[in-house]
Design a protein around this nucleic acid. Structure first.
Lengths: 215, 215
DNA sequence: CCAGAAATAAGGAAACACCCTATTGTTTTT
DNA sequence: AAAAACAATAGGGTGTTTCCTTATTTCTGG
């Protein structure tokens, strides 16, 4: 039976190229395309694809949130994360969301076909790089506890967002009606929890995790 | 006559997809692929392509430097910047380097074909978004003078790099054997020249201009 | 229910950064 | 050749942030 595939990526040329490649296979039918996470949810509802190839960094809505929505409404869909980022955060969030596969865009066509066939049969498929990341976290006992250990509190999250948006400690203390000392403490704790040394690292962290964008 | 095309991009799947699309046209022959700027220089020397589709952000060597090398050795090659970034800096640098076209990856296949045919005939081809950026700079008189006006001095560049790599003013003053006051002044002048308000903006600026990377 | 852990808040002292001003040497303009 | 602009340096004063420490409240597991 033919596998119905939905391609989600914000770059038209990439979608068109990929579609063309996949159509060469008799077992695969590209039933639709979406250029962001929002569209992916709609198309997925309308077209009921078997496999969804999902980019992560996209405008409007990213692939992580999109996958979560889609899998809540249709738990039988198999989502494959298809991204250029070897970021631990992305991999973890996607796997937590219940996706079945994770590949990088520099994989080969045959690898992609393999992945699609595997997830279609209900087998998980991770690229070797992804497997490495997952395994190294697993053996280091970082599988789930650490994520909670360095999880920011609500207040810290609030301060974090303001910090990476360029507000100073004193500006933030005025906004939140507390002492500059308090915000200073929050900042210190945030840095400690996230293992960051300076503002540069803080902002890089925020960018990697898509809390701010390079606008 | 057939147009010989070289595809330069760090994502194999994108290259394979694009190659497949382009091979559908009888006038186009994809003679090779490269996954970074360094390889692009070698392949370009060996294969003498007519048109080079060049990504910008790549490991090893970026597309801007690669294009400069290639065009120095082979001024007849037509380079088309093919990127997902609508960044003024990239556009300006590519055009200064002498590329013939500039497109985004969310363009359509037909647009790409148009672009290849145009540059092959010696006509420049910019996507409408690119044209907008260029024209708006042009009418605002920012075409070349402003770039020199807010150009950092050597010393400022040095301090800038250290700052965005996370060093504090006093650390930098120790490294460069000058007073903290001097570095403070440099920082102030850097901020003023670049029109930035705070560290967040400084770091974003550095990232956009590839002076640091999101590692 | 209550002990211990987080979260939240802040004080004092020291380090740090920012604003304005200024000197000196080097380019660029007129 | 004189005037103007720029580059590199830095001091004084002031405001900001950090470091270390302490205190209150809230949450959570046995």
């Amino acid at each position: 039976m033919e596998t119905k595939v939905l391609i989600v990526d914000d770059h038209r040329l990439f979608r068109e190229g990929l579609k063309n490649l996949l159509q060469k296979s008799d077992d695969i039918n590209v039933v639709g395309e979406a250029e962001n996470g929002m569209q992916a949810i709609e198309k997925s509802k309308a077209l009921k694809p078997d496999v969804i190839l999902m980019d992560i960094v996209m405008p409007e809505m990213n692939g992580i949130h999109s996958a979560q929505h889609i899998l809540r409404e249709n738990p039988h869909a198999k989502v494959i994360g298809l991204t250029m980022h070897n970021e631990k955060y992305f991999i973890k969030e996607m796997l937590k969301s219940g996706v079945y596969g994770y590949l990088f865009k520099d994989c080969s066509y045959t690898q992609l076909i393999d992945a699609i066939e595997s997830v279609q049969k209900g087998k998980k498929y991770l690229s070797s790089e992804t497997t490495n990341v997952v395994v190294s976290d697993y053996v280091n006992g970082l599988s789930s506890n650490s994520n909670d250990k360095n999880h920011l509190s609500e207040r810290e999250e609030e301060v974090f967002k303001l910090l990476v948006n360029g507000y100073t400690i004193s500006e933030i203390s005025n906004m939140l009606f507390v002492s500059v000392k308090t915000i200073g403490t929050h900042k210190k704790n945030i840095m400690k929890k996230l293992g960051l040394k300076n503002m540069t690292e803080l902002i890089k962290y925020a960018l990697k995790n898509e809390l701010i964008t390079l606008t």
